[in-house]
C-alpha cells in the first residue's frame, strides 16, 4: 500500500507528518495492535474527514495527532514539533498553544457559563484579564453566541453547546482543530450549522481540521476523506464540491 502523501492531499507544506505510526494496547501479555504502519501527511490548511468502521482506530489516530496519547512506534511531527521528544508538561503546553478540541458530547463544564467555558484554555496563558475578555468575545461572536455568553450549558440547545465548544477550541487561535464525531449528538439542522461553521474556520481562518466521522454527509464538507480499516489506512478520496 502506498503512503498517503502531501501531494495526494493537495500539496503545500505538511502540518501533520506521521511516519510508520503504530499503536497497540496490552491486555495482560497479549498485544492488541490498533494502528499499524500509518504514514500520512496532511498539509497546512487541509480539512480531512477520517472515516471507517467502528473499532477501526479512528479515535486512537486522532488522539495521537492531538498529542493526548503516545504511539507505540513510529514518529510524528505536528505543527513543527516532534511529539515524541516532548515530556508530559511540554506536550500539555503544546496542546494548549497549537490544538483546538471539539468533542462529540461538547464536554462543557456544567458549572461554568459560556463565557467561562470559552475562557478556560486562556487561563493557561500569560494574558491579562482584559486581553482574555477580548479574545473570548471575539470567539463567541465568530460562532454567533455573544448574546448567550452568561448562559450555563443546561440553558443552551445541543447545537448552541457545540458552538460554545467550537469557540473554546478556537479562542487560543490554534493551527489545528481536531474533532471526534462533532455532529454525532446533533439533529440534522444543528449538525449542518456546525459543519458550515467548521468549513468557514477552514476556508476563512485557514485552520487545519481533522474530523472523525461516521456520517458521509458530514464527511462531504471536508476536502479529503481518509478511510481506516482495521488499523490500516485504506484509501484516500478527494471530495468533489
Amino acid at each position: 500500500m502506498p503512503a498517503t502523501t502531501t501531494e495526494d492531499l493537495g500539496g503545500g507544506e505538511a502540518i501533520i507528518r506521521l511516519q510508520d505510526i503504530a499503536k497497540s494496547y496490552w491486555r495482560e501479555a497479549l498485544e492488541i495492535p490498533v494502528l499499524k504502519g500509518i504514514d500520512l501527511d496532511i498539509p497546512k490548511g487541509g480539512y480531512v474527514a477520517l472515516m471507517g468502521p467502528s473499532g477501526s482506530g479512528k479515535t486512537t489516530l486522532l488522539n495521537l495527532i492531538a498529542g493526548i496519547d503516545r504511539p507505540s512506534g513510529g514518529g510524528l511531527e505536528v505543527c513543527g514539533y516532534a511529539l515524541n521528544d516532548l515530556d508530559d508538561d511540554e506536550l500539555a503546553a503544546w496542546r494548549n498553544a497549537h490544538v483546538g478540541f471539539i468533542f462529540q458530547n461538547y464536554n462543557l463544564v456544567p458549572v461554568l457559563n459560556a463565557y467561562e467555558n470559552v475562557e478556560l484554555p486562556l487561563l493557561l496563558q500569560p494574558l491579562s484579564r482584559s486581553e482574555r475578555r477580548r479574545r473570548v468575545l471575539e470567539a463567541l461572536s465568530l460562532v454567533n453566541l455573544e448574546d448567550r455568553m452568561w448562559n450555563y450549558p443546561r440553558q443552551l440547545s445541543g447545537g448552541q453547546e457545540q458552538r460554545v465548544a467550537i469557540a473554546r477550541a478556537i479562542v487560543t487561535d490554534p493551527d489545528l482543530l481536531v474533532a471526534d464525531e462533532p455532529t454525532g449528538a446533533l439533529d440534522h439542522k444543528n449538525a449542518e450549522e456546525v459543519l458550515q461553521l467548521m468549513e468557514r474556520l477552514n476556508r476563512e481562518l485557514g485552520k487545519t481540521i481533522v474530523m472523525v466521522t461516521h456520517d458521509p454527509k458530514a464527511a462531504h464538507h471536508a476536502r479529503h476523506q481518509i478511510h481506516l480499516e482495521k488499523g490500516v489506512l485504506d484509501r484516500m478520496v478527494e471530495v468533489n464540491q
Binding site: I68, D88, D89, A92, R95, F101, F103, V109, L120, L124
Partner: peptide, 14 residues
C-alpha cells in the same frame, strides 16, 4: 471523569 480528561486535553497539567 470526562470533564477532567477535557481539562487535561486543553493543556491543564496533572
Amino acid at each position: 471523569t470526562k470533564e477532567i480528561g477535557m481539562l487535561r486535553a486543553l493543556g491543564f497539567r496533572q
